[in-house]
Simulated scan of single mutants.
Amino acid sequence: MSTYKLVCPHCHARMRIRTSEGTHIFLRVAYLQCTNEACGWAVRAEFEMTHEMSPSGMANPAVKLPIANVALRRAAMVPATDQPDLLNSLEMERAI
Rank of each mutant, 00 (worst) to 15 (best):
M1T: 11
M1S: 12
S2C: 05
T3N: 11
L6I: 07
L6E: 03
V7N: 04
H12S: 08
H12M: 02
H12C: 05
H12K: 12
H12L: 08
A13K: 00
A13Y: 08
A13R: 00
I17N: 14
I17E: 10
R18A: 11
T19Q: 04
S20W: 01
G22V: 06
V29W: 03
A30W: 00
Q33A: 15
Q33Y: 00
Q33W: 01
C34N: 04
C34D: 03
T35L: 13
E37R: 10
C39D: 12
C39W: 09
C39G: 09
G40Q: 05
G40H: 04
G40N: 03
A42C: 13
R44G: 00
R44E: 09
E46Y: 10
E46V: 14
F47P: 00
E48M: 13
M49H: 07
M49D: 10
T50A: 12
M53V: 14
M53I: 15
S54C: 11
S56Y: 01
G57Q: 05
M58N: 14
N60L: 00
A62M: 10
A62V: 02
V63A: 11
K64L: 11
K64Q: 11
K64D: 13
L65F: 01
L65T: 00
P66H: 06
A68H: 03
V70H: 08
A71V: 15
L72E: 14
L72C: 13
R74V: 12
A75V: 08
A76R: 07
A76I: 03
M77K: 14
M77P: 00
D82P: 00
Q83P: 00
L86Q: 08
N88K: 10
N88V: 01
N88H: 07
L90T: 02
E91L: 14
M92E: 14
M92F: 06
R94Q: 11
A95I: 04
A95P: 02
I96S: 06
